[in-house]
């Protein structure tokens, strides 16, 4: 049986915009290659497709970083970036899905869309992370994660290059953890390890 079935969480979702390249470099860079969870990430690039971003981050991280493909099944130790101009969603089976539905609050990909679909798919077995960024995308999504019993993590606004996304999230969610970027990988590692052996009582 795969390790993913033994641990409490199915995935981590993360949302980031302004300041995101650096934030993702730090977060991915701090995770070991055998990190036991998949990460699904929406990064607003604003400009044109950032398919190079995945390979840049991949080269600097022990985990694998790639652009998400339609129908791809998520795997541990891998980060999937939403492609530019597509929303990223996840099915209960763990297969990724893309859509060209209209932008949500001017954003496509949208953090809210990813977080809400993951909260529906994985319920309490989900960790949501809001990092630096302008705008307020992700607040509704993080609330959905928490409402379904998942863990809500927000980068400390004082530590964020752009604080409005973290502030927006904190305005609607009482986060389980608010901390500076450099401490987030450590927290993710201990969350991923702590739940080992437990199973979700709702499943």
């Amino acid at each position: 049986m795969s390790r993913a079935n033994d641990i409490r969480y199915r995935a981590i979702v993360a949302g980031v915009s302004m300041g995101g390249v650096e934030a993702l470099r730090v977060m991915f860079g701090g995770l070991p290659g055998d990190f036991p969870l998949p990460l699904l990430v929406v990064h607003h690039t604003g400009v044109d497709p950032g398919s190079e971003l995945a390979s840049i981050l991949d080269a600097r991280s022990a985990i694998r970083v790639k652009e998400a493909d339609d129908e791809e099944v998520i795997r541990p130790g891998t980060a999937y970036l939403a492609p530019a101009n597509y929303h990223l969603l996840v099915e209960k089976s763990g297969a990724l899905a893309l859509s060209v539905d209209p932008p949500v609050n001017f954003a496509r990909p949208s953090v809210d869309v990813l977080f809400e679909s993951a909260a529906t798919a994985f319920g309490s077995r989900l960790i949501g992370v809001i990092l630096t960024g302008a705008g307020s995308d992700g607040s509704r999504g993080l609330k959905a994660v928490q409402d379904k019993g998942g863990v809500a993590i927000v980068q400390d606004p004082a530590d964020a290059e752009a604080d409005s996304m973290p502030r927006g999230a904190l305005a609607v969610v009482t986060a389980d953890h608010v901390l500076p970027l450099k401490n987030i990988c450590g927290l993710l590692c201990s969350l991923a390890a702590s739940g080992a052996g437990k199973t979700d009582e709702r499943r």
């Binding site: 539905d101 679909s117 529906t120």
Partner: peptide, 9 residues
């Protein structure tokens, strides 16, 4: 239809 996006709409 793919479930996640159909459900959303």
């Amino acid at each position: 239809y793919a479930a996640a996006s159909l459900r959303r709409r």
